[in-house]
Computed example of a mutant assay.
Amino acid sequence: MTSNPADQKDTDLGWIKSSYSTSDGPSCVEVATILGTILIRDSKNPDGPRLTLAPTTWTAFLPYATAPRR
Rank of each mutant, 00 (worst) to 15 (best):
Glu30Val: 05
Pro63Ser: 09
Leu35Glu: 15
Gly14Ser: 05
Leu53Arg: 01
Leu13Asp: 14
Lys17Tyr: 07
Ala54Met: 12
Pro49Trp: 00
Ala67Val: 09
Pro55Asp: 14
Asp7Trp: 05
Pro46Ser: 10
Ala32Arg: 02
Ser21Lys: 05
Arg50Ser: 02
Ser19Tyr: 08
Leu35Asp: 14
Ile34Glu: 08
Lys17His: 11
Lys44Ser: 00
Pro5Gly: 04
Asn4Tyr: 05
Asp47Asn: 04
Gly36Val: 08
Glu30Leu: 07
Thr52Ile: 11
Thr33Gly: 06
Ile16Ser: 13
Cys28Arg: 13
Ser23Thr: 07
Met1His: 08
Pro63Asp: 05
Lys17Phe: 12
Leu39Tyr: 03
Ile34Val: 15
Ala60Met: 00
Gly48Glu: 09
Thr66Met: 07
Asp7Lys: 01
Phe61Gln: 03
Leu62Trp: 01
Asp47Lys: 03
Asp42Tyr: 02
Ser19Val: 11
Gly25Met: 09
Asp24His: 13
Gly14Met: 12
Ser3Arg: 01
Glu30Cys: 07
Ile34Trp: 06
Pro63Lys: 00
Asn4Met: 07
Val29Lys: 07
Trp58His: 07
Trp58Pro: 02
Lys9Thr: 15
Pro46Asp: 02
Leu53Ser: 05
Thr11Ile: 14
Arg70Ile: 15
Cys28Pro: 00
Lys9Gly: 13
Ser27Lys: 10
Ile16Cys: 09
Thr33Ile: 13
Thr2Asn: 02
Ser43Met: 08
Ser23Asp: 15
Ser27Asn: 14
Asp10Lys: 00
Ala60Asp: 00
Ser27Thr: 09
Ser21Cys: 13
Asp12Gln: 04
Asp47Leu: 06
Leu62Gly: 04
Thr37Leu: 14
Asp24Asn: 11
Gly14Thr: 08
Ile34Asn: 06
Ile16Asp: 08
Glu30Ala: 08
Ser23Ile: 05
Asp7Thr: 14
Pro5Glu: 11
Leu51Asn: 00
Pro68Leu: 15
Thr59Asp: 12
Arg41Ala: 12
Leu39Glu: 01
Pro55Ser: 10
Asp7Ser: 11
Gly14Val: 09
Ile38Asn: 00
Tyr64Met: 10
Ile38Gln: 01
Phe61Ile: 04
Ala67Ser: 04
Trp15Ser: 13
Phe61Glu: 01
Pro55Ala: 13
Glu30Asp: 15
Thr56Ser: 10
Trp15Arg: 06
Ser27Tyr: 14
Thr52Tyr: 03
Asp24Cys: 09
Pro63Arg: 02
Lys17Asp: 15
Gly25Cys: 06
Leu53Asp: 08
Arg50Leu: 03
Thr22Arg: 07
Ala32Val: 04
Arg70Glu: 08
Thr66Val: 13
Lys17Leu: 15
Gln8Gly: 10
Pro26His: 12
Asp24Val: 13
Pro63Ala: 00
Pro55Thr: 12
Asp47His: 04
Gly36Thr: 02
Met1Ser: 14
Leu35Asn: 14
Thr33Gln: 13
Ser21Tyr: 09
Pro5Gln: 02
Pro63His: 10
Gly14His: 09
